[in-house]
Design a protein around this nucleic acid. Sequence first.
DNA 1: TTGTGTGAAACGATTCACAGCT
DNA 2: AGCTGTGAATCGTTTCACACAA
Lengths: 267, 267
Amino acid sequence: MATGRTHRPATRSRGIPEATVARLPLYLRALTALSERSVPTVSSEELAAAAGVNSAKLRKDFSYLGSYGTRGVGYDVEYLVYQISRELGLTQDWPVVIVGIGNLGAALANYGGFASRGFRVAALIDADPAMKGKPVAGMPVQHTDDLEKIISDNGVHIGVIATPAGAAQQVSERLIAAGVTSILNFAPTVLSVPDGVDVRKVDLSIELQILAFHEQRKAGEEAAAVAGAADDVVTPPPLRADTAAAAAAAAASRKGPDGDVPAVMPA
Amino acid sequence: MATGRTHRPATRSRGIPEATVARLPLYLRALTALSERSVPTVSSEELAAAAGVNSAKLRKDFSYLGSYGTRGVGYDVEYLVYQISRELGLTQDWPVVIVGIGNLGAALANYGGFASRGFRVAALIDADPAMKGKPVAGMPVQHTDDLEKIISDNGVHIGVIATPAGAAQQVSERLIAAGVTSILNFAPTVLSVPDGVDVRKVDLSIELQILAFHEQRKAGEEAAAVAGAADDVVTPPPLRADTAAAAAAAAASRKGPDGDVPAVMPA
DNA sequence: TTGTGTGAAACGATTCACAGCT
DNA sequence: AGCTGTGAATCGTTTCACACAA
């Protein structure tokens, strides 16, 4: 080891909490907007409002990066942009490949936000031979056969999977074998990957389902006791014959969903 | 109030933790796959593996819904599918509108996972007059002028925003005014909405930036002490002239990012 | 006086570990 | 004997509130 800088404290990622890391891009975006308007400094209060968080959280987040503010004044916008960019690793350029050039893959390829800061689409890859050579977002689509070569020739470490669910696991394995260690997965599947590989998942239908849950709750607010009274004793599910007994038993002994109090008192 | 069922405990969403709600769709997907393979029952261990979580968490999650398992046996697949669907509000059909039919909007419209369970694309809306009437995913694109009418005619409560960032806030306001109370936002902006409106955000570049952070960390693992030693004393940021003094002062007094120990001991 | 930086308290989520039902 | 359901312990995150620097 050449310098006195420690190898890394063996703890969590340099001590920056994951929740904080997830918010840094948000701050960065707000700061970039301020920077473009040539605003020289911001207070935690202002910046927090722009990023949609509260100011205590923002100050705590920044405190993990170091003391970059000036008491009584606020934060220097340009300086903070730089520090956060550096912390996120955006001062270097990350080549990424997009695998699966369907509607979504094409949308991603065309998405300006990709190229803007720190990322560069190095290649578009698709399994369909008919796609080969077709230009998408000003770039010829390449065939999956060449995936390994493309990854290593371009030094790609980040891959985006936009294939159908069925292909995703296999694609991830090939990406990883070729040297990719971070994957952004748009396919609706759980990828299983070796340790040391990061996967982030973007799942449209999961997000919608979460919204539906809350939406239902809102609707139930006023309507439940009125229209839902009979509806509340639910129509029994269509049970498979060979498990009906077990399910019936389970149903008979199950508690209501309202917490500790059984809906049907057993004793 | 017609029944004895309490109005709702005034606490958190019926007592189901948000983190649990966010995982229910994951369980549902795994269960649906089992159901299609006609698997009658699963243990928490098996289902957890399929959903990519650990079994203790899964059991705790299910315990918030009620006692739906059978000790010594496991969970009845069909029954659980039904219970979770009901909990998520997927036994009813949610009409959704997609606003902004560019690359991404078109991809969303074509995405099969939408229609499959509980959601129905009621309309596609775009501001470009040239798009009007053009069929996307077998459906004519309608013009933004008719947004309010479309929302109310179809009883839409969930809206998907896939417009450019600049249009998103205004679109959200129109959606909300027309009756939408849940928004899935793909535009890279913070939406400000009134209380009672739920917003979920899907942001491609944020996800990539989080990956870049971890990727940088991995790269630094072996290379930092070697090549990064000189690189570690960073090239100073390009400071604006009128804030250079304050920033310099801040830089001089700032602590290093390694926690409590100042990188440059002041005394 | 203003607004950062941060210990300490409060909160929420996860994991442990085992009692209790089948 | 096996697996769920759940209190209790643990861990991570958020919020509070205020000392301290500019």
